[in-house]
Design a protein around this nucleic acid. Structure first.
Length: 662
DNA sequence: ATTTCCTATCTTTTT
DNA sequence: GATAGGAAAT
């Protein structure tokens, strides 16, 4: 019984599915049926008698992992597929670390530090080490730390002295909190496998067949991790496309894919070049662009869907018109019977979304956003999670400090500073300080009372959990007791904001409940939330409407109708990339964007754009001059709008008069 | 201690 | 045009 239909695959795909042993490199261009090939290959492993628990597939996002798992299970059935491990590098490492971290000197109940909390620590340290006037950006420090860790170089070796000092202090701080960050996850995972032979044997024996998806996005540390994890006979299959490498800024190293054979000798190399996604026109334009990059594995997307509409390139007078026109265009094309889910608007920077959102809302068109603010990084959610962390372990100082006076309960800056100082002097957690008599004695009655009340709350609710009450319920009643929601609502300016936050909080509580019902501990839940930055995507599929998405987040997705907006010099290629000499990566980014389109692709650029509330003149992107014009139809806003344009002018005229009268 | 109001800065991209 | 962090007012 074949779980998949091998005859539905083309020659190269079939080869990938039948060549199961030893190192395999699959170069899969955009839209060439990569996911299908990989999932078929995993089914094939199962059918050839490899046990599911011995198969590991690593992806870059949780979403991709969930999808891949689901698709394999669809093919082979739940029974045979349920023990597969499909996860991200980071979750894999959490799994390794939760078992073996003691061999590198951390406690097993370590905490994962992510997002805003990390920024918070760095920001504090910048002030402490550099003074209040220091305007070093946390992001820059974090990026340097990340670079050093990924290269396994000592933090003291960072060139900038101040950054090095902050980096070391940061690491000490994490260490003191028994916390590790994203890079540590990989770093320690690799170190365990390198140094602890028993652990290495265990994990190698567990994962005998390893697949790595989106291989072009791996960094050198991840490569070393793979090398440690995959011993002879090297049953490793990597899948990727160097032309879609868009995470260089995060350390992704295309050497891994360009010189794969130096890491695993004599790999079977398979190229997937037949594209089943896009029309000929779209592919010709994409190919003409990517050809301009140097140092790539030479390949071309071969169309299987011939002809198709020309790619449209529309010149816009400004970003207002751009948004307005695209919305009109969506309305028009919907008349032709397209669903809203068919449309996607792709942009380079998050700052471009707002205009588009407003325009869509004005026409009451539902939309869904991907790649905007992460669910778990929202203030109110981090507060709620802070309380969860306290329930799990009140000695997590970061969580404690975060919620100590949120919502305000009479524990102000002074009291907090005293507590911090006390815990530093006595080398204990802040929580320990708060329950120390001698500390409480030095406070005013008011502050002391507030602290005592808080401590009692924490203890009471912890006890409820120990007594077996559902964590979700405990959390909910605690939040009620402190009037968390009313306080949160009071801060909101608009009803929309109120709704959003209200929903977010109740969803977070629901998540806690759901996790505990699934038998997960609070720590498991917190791990998951730390790693699962793209939580929103869960309900993405449920939500209907036009998709608004960054180019980065769009990789791997496809839409019948794609609008690529803001193709201006300085935006794409981004100004910073031109300065840093990474224009090739920007070109790949545009390539990724173009190849998302199945049927119709429209690209737009503006003559002016509002930046920081001020209009600025823009130039069209230099990439546009690299495209194959044979497959492009150039248009401009005024011609397309015709009479409406004069309407517009008329309206402008009246508003001019109104202004003059005021 | 808390709220409110002002100003400085900001915009790549994310596990 | 938003937002976060600081100073001033309550």
């Amino acid at each position: 019984m074949a779980g998949f239909d091998i005859s539905a695959l083309n020659r190269a795909q079939r080869e990938a599915v039948t060549w199961l042993d030893g190192p395999v490199l699959i170069l899969a261009g955009a839209g060439t049926g990569k996911t299908r090939t990989v999932t078929c290959r995993m089914s094939a492993l199962l059918e050839n008698g490899v046990a599911a628990r011995n198969i590991l597939a690593v992806t870059f996002t949780n979403k991709a992992a969930a999808e891949m798992r689901e698709r394999v299970i669809e093919m082979v059935g739940k029974k045979r597929g349920k023990d597969l491990t499909v996860c991200t590098f980071h979750s894999l490492c959490v799994r390794i670390l939760r078992r073996d971290i003691e061999s590198v000197g951390y406690k097993k109940n370590f905490n994962i530090m992510a997002g805003g909390d990390q920024v918070g620590i760095i920001r504090q340290l910048i002030v402490r080490k550099g003074g209040a006037r220091e305007k070093l950006k946390p992001a820059e420090v974090m990026s340097e730390i990340s670079k050093a860790k990924s290269a396994e170089l000592p933090l003291t070796g960072i060139e900038d002295r101040l950054i090095a000092e902050i980096a070391v202090a940061y690491q000490n701080e994490l260490r003191a909190q028994n916390s590790i960050d994203f890079d540590d996850l990989l770093l320690l995972g690799e170190r365990i496998l390198t140094e602890d032979q028993a652990a290495r044997d265990y994990w190698r024996d567990t994962f005998r067949y390893v697949t790595v998806d989106e291989f072009q996005d791996t960094n050198s540390l991840q490569m070393r991790l793979i090398q440690q994890l995959v011993g002879p006979p090297h049953h490793i299959c990597v899948v990727g496309d160097d032309d879609q490498s868009i995470y260089g800024w995060r350390g992704a190293d295309t050497t891994n894919i360009l010189q794969f054979e130096t890491f695993f000798p004599n790999p079977k190399v398979i190229r997937l070049e037949e594209n089943y996604r896009s029309t000929e026109a779209v592919l010709k334009v994409a190919n003409s662009l990517i050809k301009k990059n140097t140092g790539r594995r030479e390949k071309e997307l071969k169309p299987t869907i011939m002809g198709g509409d020309l790619v449209r390139l529309v010149a816009m007078p400004g970003d207002d018109e751009e948004a307005e026109w695209i919305v009109q265009e969506i309305l028009n094309q919907r008349e032709e019977g397209r669903a809203l889910e068919d449309f996607a608007i792709l942009f380079r920077t998050n700052g471009q979304i707002r205009k588009m959102e407003n325009a869509l809302r004005e026409e009451k068109i539902p939309y869904r956003m991907v790649g905007a603010q992460s669910f778990y990084d929202r203030k109110e959610i981090r507060d709620v999670l802070g309380y969860v962390q306290l329930l799990a372990d009140p000695e997590k100082d970061i969580a404690l400090l975060r919620v100590l006076n949120t919502p305000p309960r009479g524990i102000g800056q002074n009291t907090t500073m005293l507590a911090l100082e006390h815990s530093r002097v006595n080398d204990c957690s802040v929580w320990k300080t708060l329950i120390t008599e001698s500390f409480l004695a030095q406070l005013s009655t008011k502050a002391g009372g507030a602290i005592t009340k808080f401590v009692r709350q924490v203890e009471d609710h912890q006890r409820m959990i120990v007594d077996g009450k559902a964590p979700g319920v405990v959390l909910d009643s605690w939040l009620r007791e402190m009037d968390f929601l009313p306080w949160l609502m009071k801060q909101c300016k608009t009803d929309k904001e109120r709704d959003a936050r209200n929903e977010a909080v109740s969803q977070a509580i629901g998540d806690v409940t759901a996790a505990s019902q699934k038998g997960q501990s609070l720590q498991d839940f917190l791990d998951k939330t730390a790693l699962d930055a793209d939580k929103n995507d869960d309900d993405l599929d449920k939500k209907s409407g036009v998709t608004l998405i960054t180019l980065h987040a769009s990789k791997g997705l496809e839409y019948p109708v794609v609008f690529l907006v803001g193709l201006e010099e300085g935006i794409l290629p981004h100004k910073r990339s031109t300065e840093e000499g990474t224009k090739d990566e920007e070109r790949r980014l545009l390539y990724v964007g173009i190849t998302r389109a199945k049927e119709r692709l429209t690209m737009t650029y503006c003559a002016t754009r509002t930046k920081w509330g001020k209009k600025e003149a823009c130039e069209e992107s230099s990439f546009l001059r690299e495209l194959d014009l044979d497959w492009i139809e150039e248009e401009n806003y005024d011609d397309l709008m015709g009479e409406e344009a004069s309407d517009e002018e008329l309206r402008g005229f009246f508003s001019g008069i109104q202004e003059a009268l005021q």
